[in-house]
Design a protein around this nucleic acid. Structure first.
Length: 474
DNA sequence: AGCCATGATTGTGC
DNA sequence: GCACAATCATGGCT
């Protein structure tokens, strides 16, 4: 035993302690010392032929005790038992015991002690954070799990149609949470039980071998660390379970669902009415997302796909373009008419431009007829719709297409329709007009998306590219 | 089943 | 971070 060697080397210090010991014993009558009561309050045996006043004598006494301790293992069980009892009852025992504890404390355990204060395990911290974030650890209801489910719901796109998946996800997560907490509780219980057991054992043993309370504390710490490593495994497997659940849930979300007809229409209307620059701003995307009951990223995806597919095969999309362009144009015409009427109503002194439209004039039954109408409207050719003079709208359009922008009162509202109208016109009977060029929007050869002749920056002097035109996206 | 349309994802470049 | 391009994967029609 290493500590017995130490003891042997420290006989001098023991002798010194014995002096104190004897003094204290005299004063307190052997009630307790260094936390160890004198066994059974027994009368102390006589000091083995020494009077205790002589230092050399004490040393010899201690040496005798140590010798007995060292040789106890060589003796028969009965012999040893008897000797052990004798030693336990020896008046020197408590002092010797405390010194042994002290030495033990100062040697091996101090080394171990320095290793105890390890920093918090980063992996454990990560696991804890993840479990908190996923709603497995932390507050029960209205807390993490609800937040996680809400986040999943927000990311999943279309509202309402996947509520079953959400509840499924929630149920599974709750299940994992329950298992986690049950297991955690079990571990904690087991840890406490084991700790209590070991403590009792050590306390019991401390009567016969040098175990200080500090050492018991250390042992408890060791047990807790062992159990916390088991807990970490539990946390790790819980995290894995959550990840699997999430991946399954994400896979479920990956399932493609076509947008509603209405949503597609709204998106298409915006796309074709901003054909010169089909890049909705963040605000526009948000508004479109709101209108279509989809997420902003879905709007982005849609526009990304649309741009690519339109660019790849413009011809294929012409019919669709015509349809939406006409639709938007009609809306615009309505809006413009309303604006003009409003301005006339609000300011009676405004000269009558003669640009009046009646609803029945827009009762068109096909995209083609609309296109024709619109073409005529711009080319001034004879048809069902006449511009009595070169009206405000026409002038506004012309200005918009040119370098200077005027006629804001109508043009501002109508601006976005210019793209549409010009597109429609270009798609119908060979648009070759006052603008003097083909204004079919198509991506640049270099991959950019700009009107071949009219940069969007010129087209939209009043608005940034991709801004929302509420009147067109309805 | 095959085909096409379409929403989503991924890799790349700026 | 965004847009593009390619690709994947599914929905829906025939």
């Amino acid at each position: 035993m290493s500590f017995s060697i130490c003891v042997a080397q420290c006989t001098d210090s023991l002798a010194a302690t014995m002096d104190d010991q004897a003094r204290i014993m005299q004063s307190i009558g052997g009630v307790s010392l260094a936390g160890h009561s004198v066994q059974g309050g027994m009368a102390l045996p006589p000091p083995h032929g020494h009077d205790g006043s002589d230092g050399d004598g004490r040393k010899q006494d201690i040496g005798d005790i140590l010798h007995q301790i060292m040789t106890i293992t060589d003796q028969s069980l009965d012999e040893a038992q008897a000797k052990k009892h004798g030693l336990n009852c020896h008046r020197m025992k408590p002092a010797l015991f405390s010194v042994l504890c002290e030495i033990k404390e100062k040697t091996g355990l101090s080394i171990r002690g320095s290793q105890e204060e390890d920093p918090p395990d980063p992996q454990l911290m990560r696991l804890d954070n993840m479990l908190l974030a996923e709603g497995v650890a932390g507050p029960e209801k209205g807390g993490g799990s609800a937040a996680a489910a809400a986040a999943a719901a927000a990311a999943s796109g279309a509202a309402g149609d996947n509520s079953i998946e959400h509840s499924d996800y929630r149920a599974k997560l709750t299940q994992i949470r329950q298992i986690y907490h049950t297991e955690l509780e079990k571990y904690e219980q087991a840890c406490n039980e084991f700790t209590t057991h070991v403590m009792n054992l050590l306390r019991e043993q401390s009567r016969t071998r040098p175990i200080s309370p500090k050492e018991i504390e250390r042992m408890v710490g060791i047990i807790h660390r062992k159990f916390s490593s088991i807990q970490m495994q539990l946390k790790q497997s819980t995290c894995e379970a959550v990840m699997i659940l999430r991946s399954r849930f994400l896979d479920a979300r990956r399932k493609r669902r076509n947008f509603s007809k209405q949503a597609t229409e709204i998106l298409n209307e915006y796309f074709y009415s901003h054909l010169s620059n089909p890049y909705p701003s963040e605000e526009a995307k948000e508004e479109l997302a709101k209108k279509c009951s989809i997420t902003v990223s879905q709007v982005s995806n849609w526009f990304g796909n649309k741009r690519i597919r339109y660019k790849k095969n413009i011809g294929k999309f012409q019919e669709e373009a015509n349809l939406y362009a006409a639709k938007t144009a009609v809306n615009a015409a309505h809006a413009a008419a309303a604006a003009v009427q409003n301005s006339q109503a609000n300011s009676p002194t405004t000269p009558n431009s003669g640009f009046q439209m009646k609803d029945e004039e827009f009762q068109l039954d096909s995209a083609e007829s609309k296109n024709t109408l619109l073409t005529n409207m711009f080319t001034g050719s004879s048809g069902s719709f006449n511009l009595p003079n070169s009206g405000d709208m026409f002038l506004s359009m012309q200005s918009l297409n040119g370098d200077s922008y005027q006629g804001a009162q109508v043009g501002a509202n109508v601006q976005s329709q210019v793209d549409t109208l010009r597109h429609v016109i270009s798609q119908t009977a060979g648009y070759n007009d006052a603008f003097g060029r083909n204004t079919m929007y198509s991506p640049h050869a270099n991959g950019g998306w700009q009107d071949a002749t009219t940069p969007s920056s010129v087209i939209s002097p009043t608005e940034g590219p991709g801004s929302v035109h509420s009147e067109t996206s309805n």
